[in-house]
Nucleic acid binder design. Structure first.
Lengths: 335, 335
DNA sequence: CATCGTTGGTACAACGTTGTAAACCCCAGG
DNA sequence: CCTGGGGTTTACAACGTTGTACCAACGATG
């Protein structure tokens, strides 16, 4: 593969002159510029980014740390981050943590090797000190809530308000036994959504029943199905379910259908994330729809600014969301 | 961030001795080794991979080129490739092409910049010459079929046989008007699956009806829904549909339900890819299930061998698949 | 004609790492 | 005492790029 040296030899100029042409330096004699450009074409020169970055002190890489790509929310988000990063000439390195604290710690630890300019991290189980100890000096932007407050840039929606809106919607349909699926021992977003759920119930004057709050250690379809099975075994089963993500809701819909329940007539269901999948379900899924493109774009932009000037106070950006009302809480269902 | 030089200064030895310790060179005096290791700890040294790779001529990166992450099949595959690559100490760079020829050309072209050791490419619209011209000398493994035969390593299932098996299954249910959705002007896999569809019909003595073969320029849910709407507008609509991927099938199921058709009683539906989503649909989706883990693992391994020895004859590896029979072709449905 | 500023070009060093080769030390053997 | 040969360490160059400093040529100015 051709290097600057090869091009220079062919064009009969110095290496630096070729470098100047490549980088658009103004003062090059037309004659030389022509010769260099010709040589560039015939050799098919492409800059060695590794060397360039070594020299420039930047790597051109950005890490995107997330639990797993099979979860549609993260797949969609990753796609959008890829696009946003492209605009800033960043290559994206995706790392899966499998959502475990060990996985997340290991990933963060392997980050500190000069090969990335910064990281966008979507944590699930991380604790505060993990960041400080394991990724020292690396610019980091955090997606969503996390349990402990850290001086890091952060992007996400207002989960409390979003959950409130979802539950208020169920209340407005006349539902009184509204369950929640997705409580979690240490996930920050889960705590926020639970808080919104509770405050909305309280605001509506509905009682808080512990048996209607189901824990989910994972947020996959099967966990939603399992949780719904337990809720339906209650002496007084719920007439509405608020799920902390769409996958849980899909599992809920499946279980409800298997038990012969009609949605929304017997049980109304609301999800969270607005995965494409939910719109094609039968019934289609009412869901909290965060503006994922805004999240991706904002995260990349925050990271860019953090990389440029490290000594800025950390920012906390809230991106918009809306409630997407569909059949699973609608007036009539196809089911 | 600490460099070898810093560590060397602290330990009172030369840079090379530190390098030797870091790389496990045998002949270092115990006294010096101890001092260096101590200095490594106190400085928190981490090698600059950019520089190391520049020197070694390897980058430690691998590109995964695919149409889009929002398509569950690619998200699942990407997750598995990430895992497989980790075992070989490769970082994975994901590039989205959006499935267009221009996108794929641009991506391949941007690859030739020394920053990756090789690429795993899942092409949709690429033509033969694009590879040769745009990614010269870069080790490439191709996923799935593509139109033109090229001397490149390739991994995939036998799409013809897989499609045959799917259609045979529909025939065995007594269906006679079996439609196919997903024909495509230049996608290699589409051509193969169409061939399997045709040969299975022929083997069963069923007529080939052109109006039952629906083209889909994209393989998203909405395309399946649209194609199904057209098929149902036929004077004699199909009693079974074979979709070239699960997303199309999900769209088909949705449209069928909206028209009040029962699946599988009125129309049986088979998909392709075995996305997790399909198992939770109502009815759950019968589908061709390729062994994605095997595909990912094989692709990474082929690439490793190609990088190590470039002058091997290209290999074509076929990975296993099975037909996953579920409710959408089963005896009874919940719908 | 000397001086100056501008334009165009080059040599060199440096980014952090590792391979090569040479130097150093020490001890055994002649 | 010298020599040889191992173990141990180091200086140097190189990977491909770009910033800095410097040099050369030129026309304009005094």
């Amino acid at each position: 593969m051709a290097t600057l040296k090869d091009v220079a030899a062919l064009a009969g100029v110095s290496v630096k002159t070729v470098s100047n042409v490549v980088n658009g330096y103004a003062f090059v004699r037309p004659e030389n510029r022509r010769r260099v450009e010709e040589a560039l074409l015939t050799t098919g020169y492409r800059p060695n980014l590794g060397a360039r970055n070594l020299r420039r002190g930047r790597t051109g890489f950005l890490a995107l740390v997330l639990p797993e790509l099979v979860v549609p929310y993260f797949a969609e988000l990753a796609g959008l981050v890829l696009q946003a990063a492209q605009a800033h000439e960043w290559n994206v390195l995706i790392e899966q943590t499998r959502g475990t604290r060990e996985g997340e710690r290991a990933t963060l630890a392997s980050l500190g090797t000069h090969l990335i300019d910064g990281a966008i991290v979507s944590p699930e189980a991380l604790e505060a000190r993990d960041f400080g100890e394991l990724a020292p000096g690396i610019p980091v932007v955090v997606l969503g809530e996390h349990s402990v407050d850290l001086p890091l840039d952060r992007v996400g929606i207002d989960n409390v308000r979003a959950a409130e809106e979802a539950v208020r919607h169920l209340v407005s349909l006349g539902r009184t036994r509204i369950a929640a699926i997705g409580a979690h021992p240490y996930r920050g977003t889960a705590a926020q959504r639970l808080r919104g759920y509770r405050s909305a119930l309280a605001a509506a004057g509905l009682p808080l029943r512990d048996e209607l709050v189901a824990t989910a250690l994972n947020y996959h379809r099967r966990d939603g199905a399992a949780a719904m099975a337990e809720l339906l075994a209650l002496p007084e089963p719920p007439d509405a379910v608020f799920c902390f993500n769409d996958l849980l809701a899909v599992g809920v819909l499946r279980t409800a259908a298997e038990r012969g329940l009609r949605v929304p007539e017997d049980v109304a269901v609301v999800g969270f994330d607005n995965n494409e999948e939910g719109g094609y379900n039968r019934p289609s899924l009412t869901t909290v729809a965060p503006d994922k493109a805004a999240i991706a774009h904002t995260a990349v932009d925050l990271l860019r600014r953090r990389v440029e000037t490290a000594d800025r106070p950390p920012e906390r950006v809230q991106t918009p969301f809306r409630l997407e009302v569909r059949e699973s809480t609608g007036p009539a269902s196809g089911g």
